[in-house]
Design a protein around this nucleic acid. Structure first.
Lengths: 237, 237
DNA sequence: CAGTGGTCTAGACCACTCG
DNA sequence: GAGTGGTCTAGACCACTGT
């Protein structure tokens, strides 16, 4: 979106509708102008009006029902774009030094519960890594990760002091889907020791499971010391 | 998107490009097919090819540069849609009972630091509420909130045992922008007491600042007991 | 200059929903 | 049947980038 001749017509229409929504005309659930109304009101072709409304739909501001009309949405779903970044990039972008310590990297037989959580057949093998990431020498993340060998057969041969599992897995299987949970917990004794924090230090724990095209890729438990790490973000509707 | 005649042409093209990206053709940064190439390859009009590529751009899968071409993106930005839900809806959707206890609701003069954090002029007044939300009688959230009176003059007269501040503020000022941070911390002594947890219990703390059209709306500190609450979500690229 | 993306038009056909 | 959204076309003009 670099080309903005004083203003594109579809953008005009989008603005008009957005401001109207913001101002409370068209309360949630009410009918909004139809495409043909916009066509006459703004003297544009239908494709242009359509694009404006379709983009609002993609942004979640309106709902459209074929044969019926366009409706303002209940905006409590204020969805946002949470950017999951690779910790390595985050650190180096701050101009700091990132280092990884690999404490474990091996193949294991899956336990029953793990097989279930990952969606793997019982009795199969998984790759298991335990890596501590630090920023300028300060431990920032303890990453306990299981990987589906079928999706990343060379995983164990990767040098994780040079790249991160996240980064590597993105090259092997881009375009994934993920479920995550974020919670506050005390670390396990081992995690506390690896991170160099007291066992009583609250930690921010992200559990993330990713899959691609229906088959699981990885399950990771990311433990951050609460005193050293926060997730930040912003969103616009 | 209810109407899918066997398959829309633009969707065909999107799929073709997505699968190619997923398969590793067009590694990150490389040039992708131009619109005119897609036009001949798929026998469609340029508008149709354009729509396919434009939607991929909106999804963050490609970058486009006018006069140059379309490029595959570095996918480490795996952006997602984090849905900020109203706790009341979340609880009632589980079939449980939500109750709010209002511990504080008054106007105050802003402190200097608060004025700065909210982006308000020093010396002005703000509304301040402190509400504890519980699910089936168990405290789940301690909500400490400051509100800009200019944006919600009737805020203090709202009955917060019947609606939530989030809900009310959405009706007053829809379409907002927000910055948030998520961290793990110990609660303050007051918060621990209000939530009925030990002061040593890790808490998930979300600090959210919202504004709309450049003027601040509210600043909230949401404290959840770590043992009772997790943020969950999923995303697809 | 040729090639790219950014936008727009004036039609068109279709599927769906409602009265 | 009238009105809605969903899609598509075959052109067009423009701005930008490279060589």
């Amino acid at each position: 979106m670099t080309y903005l001749p004083p203003a594109a017509a579809y953008a005009h229409i989008k603005n008009y509708l957005k401001e109207g929504l913001s101002a409370g005309r068209w309360p949630p659930g009410t009918l909004m102008p139809s495409e043909s109304e916009l066509v006459t009101q703004f003297s544009v072709s239908r494709m242009t009006a359509n694009r404006a409304v379709r983009e609002l739909q993609a942004e979640g501001l309106v709902e459209r029902v074929q044969g019926v009309g366009t409706f303002a949405t209940q905006p409590y779903r204020a969805s946002s774009t949470l950017t999951i970044r690779d910790l390595h990039d985050e650190i180096t972008e701050r101009g700091h030094r990132h280092r990884s310590e690999v404490h474990l990297a091996r193949a294991e037989a899956v336990s029953e519960t793990l097989a279930q959580r990952m969606g793997l057949p019982a009795g199969s093998e998984v790759f298991h890594t335990l890596i501590v990431h630090s920023e300028n020498g300060v431990p920032l993340l303890c990453e306990d990760r299981y990987v589906n060998p079928a999706r990343a057969p060379d995983y164990l041969s990767v040098d994780f002091t040079r790249t991160t599992p996240t980064n590597y897995l993105l090259t092997v299987a881009p375009l994934w889907e993920a479920q995550y949970s974020i919670e506050a917990q005390l670390p396990t004794a081992e995690e506390a020791q690896l991170l160099g924090v007291k066992p009583s230090e609250p930690c921010l724990i992200v559990v993330r499971r990713t899959e691609s095209q229906g088959s699981p890729i990885t399950l990771a438990r990311l433990v951050h010391p609460g005193s050293r790490y926060t997730i930040e973000g912003s969103f616009k509707p």
